[in-house]
């Protein structure tokens, strides 16, 4: 009986793990576009404003485009989060109780996602508030919270999957993205805009690396 359950957990864990990684590919590549998109939208608006037929709405948009983009990215990460949570729950249902003490099972949530995810929402709230109070110079703080909490959540989810399969392997590519963000984003804020490129490149690299790793090859027939 236990052997069959082990096989079941192993097979379902492997399928779900690949699925989660596929979703992460989209997330890494998507977020690597955040800085370039932000820059391009800002540049396009400035260009349009300088044209003769510029309307007042464009000035308003120039003030708020950053926040609007931010909200779009938050919405997308929320959708990805739901997808992953739904996918890993069935595996957790059969694996967690077997590998954890019964008294620790109560209240267990897949990937311990909720507290971290609430940080994402808080970040949006703070960002909006800073905009209203005309303190957009401090907007990097909620954005930093937003990214870090998103990344921690993804690491949590990946580790949950590894735990379900019986090993706590650390994911190096996630750590690279984490470091790339910390150095690139903070460097971009405090030192030079050029650091933003590091952030964009490491996340793009993480996405492409995962894609190549995930592509794999079909097993040989026996």
């Amino acid at each position: 009986m236990n052997n069959e359950i082990d096989t079941t957990i192993d097979v379902s864990g492997r399928i779900i793990y690949r699925y989660v990684r596929t979703v992460e590919i989209f997330v890494y590549i998507l977020f690597s576009t955040y800085i370039p998109v932000n820059f391009l939208v800002g540049l396009s608006l400035e260009f349009l404003i300088n044209l003769d037929f510029a309307v007042n709405a464009l000035y308003l948009l120039l003030d708020f485009y950053s926040l609007i983009l931010f909200l779009v990215y938050v919405f997308l990460i929320y959708r990805y989060r739901r997808k992953i949570k739904k996918a890993i729950e069935p595996v957790m249902r059969i694996s967690v109780p077997r590998r954890r003490q019964p008294e620790r099972m109560h209240g267990y949530r897949a990937g311990s996602a909720s507290p971290v995810f609430s940080l994402l929402i808080t970040a949006v709230g703070i960002s909006a508030l800073l905009d209203i109070l005309d303190l957009s110079a401090y907007e990097f703080i909620p954005i930093f919270i937003f990214y870090i909490s998103g990344l921690i959540w993804f690491i949590n989810v990946s580790r949950s999957i590894y735990d379900a399969m019986g090993s706590g392997k650390l994911i190096r590519i996630d750590l690279l993205a984490f470091i790339g963000f910390s150095v690139g984003y903070l460097g971009g804020i405090f030192i030079s805009d050029a650091f933003f490129i590091l952030f964009t490149l490491t996340w793009l690299f993480s996405g492409i690396f995962l894609y190549l790793e995930n592509r794999g090859s079909e097993p040989a027939d026996e």
């Binding site: 097979v11 890993i88 729950e89 059969i94």
Partner: peptide, 23 residues
């Protein structure tokens, strides 16, 4: 059972993805 449980969570998957991930 493993395939079914995974499908229960993700609903649909491509043939190649399933083949590669099961090994």
């Amino acid at each position: 059972t493993g395939i079914m449980i995974a499908l229960y969570g993700i609903r649909k998957i491509t043939f190649t993805d399933l083949l590669i991930s099961t090994g």
